[in-house]
């Protein structure tokens, strides 16, 4: 993996230049689908972009220096790490990657929620604190099936590299593991039924309650990038097109990501929000059950 290639994937595709508009598009699509499912018109196409620009233009609340610094650095770290995770996605399985980049990807994906937890606590808001503790509990809960599923893929493919997993994992293992991974996405994206961490009727905006202006814009940005990272991860593992020309791979990657957004949006529109304990229990029982079965299948095959 050359430096140039690395830079391209970080800054152009699937990195910043692609991921930013794609993230906004996915957020718009989710809101639009939600609205249509409810018989409403929904937001205009550029709404997430407008929201971002509007927040950036706002004058931030003056805070104590350290708190202000932390409240800026934490969302920035979330943006940077999520962007890094996107750059590692094996859209072109044969083109790059290195042994162990799966571990790096997982840790980069985890930085976002971790920053949100810390960000909630440093904002010193009661609701931010509750949101942060909920976020922490949920992160622990969904990571059990999330990691088991990834481990099943690794075990099946016999490789810790993303490209290896994408190309070599056995299909029965892959299907089960991907179901478990998809189930984890709503927690990270705060979508129903697993949106307890940002339940506005209980705790306003959760960990971002105290954030305003550009700082909130950074969270929104991180959120948009998370959409791309998580749907992209599933998309690149679900349909690895190894031999086709690069435009075909890009189209497949984008199409699968968008299809995933549609599915998740409809699932969110048709459910109520589960409580914290119920969400955690679901992941520890059902989610982990699916992931564990993937693991069992992987070992039996071996």
């Amino acid at each position: 993996m050359t430096v140039v290639r690395g830079l391209i994937s970080l800054l152009v595709f699937p990195g910043a230049l692609f991921a930013l508009p794609a993230g906004w598009f996915m957020m718009w699509l989710q809101r639009k689908i939600n609205a249509r499912a409810q018989g409403r018109i929904g937001p205009p196409f550029f709404q997430p972009f407008f929201d971002f620009v509007k927040l950036l233009a706002k004058e931030p609340v003056v805070r104590p220096r350290l708190q202000g610094f932390l409240m800026t650095v934490l969302p920035l770290a979330a943006v940077a790490s999520t962007l890094g995770a996107i750059a590692l996605l094996p859209v072109f399985p044969k083109a790059g990657g290195f042994s162990g980049d799966l571990v790096l990807l997982v840790s980069l994906i985890e930085v976002g929620p971790l920053c949100a937890v810390l960000g909630g606590f440093v904002s010193r808001s009661l609701y931010g604190g509750i949101g942060a503790s909920r976020e922490a509990v949920l992160t622990l809960a969904y990571n059990v099936p999330f990691l088991i599923a990834l481990f099943a893929l690794v075990a099946s493919a016999g490789s810790f590299s993303l490209a290896g997993v994408a190309l070599a994992a056995a299909w029965p293992v892959r299907v089960l593991a991907l179901i478990a991974l998809v189930a984890c996405i709503p927690v990270k994206l705060h979508l129903n039924p697993f949106s307890a961490a940002s339940a506005e009727q209980e705790i306003y905006a959760g960990s971002t309650t105290e954030y305003d202006g550009p700082r909130l814009a950074l969270w929104e940005l991180a959120h948009a990038l998370e959409w791309v990272a998580l749907t992209g991860l599933v998309a690149s593992l679900a349909f690895p097109v190894a031999d086709a020309a690069w435009p075909v791979r890009v189209v497949v990657f984008v199409a699968v990501s968008v299809a995933l957004v549609v599915v998740l949006s409809f699932a969110a529109a048709s459910t109520a929000r589960l409580k914290l304990a119920q969400t955690a229990r679901w992941f520890l029982l059902c989610g982990s059950g699916i992931a564990l079965s993937a693991l069992v299948v992987a070992f039996v095959r071996l």
């Binding site: 939600n34 339940a199 109520a272």
Partner: peptide
């Protein structure tokens, strides 16, 4: 009640 449990679709159905 639906809105409070985060079930916006049903909320809209009731209000419709």
């Amino acid at each position: 009640a639906c809105e409070l449990i985060g079930f916006e679709t049903l909320f809209m159905a009731c209000f419709g």
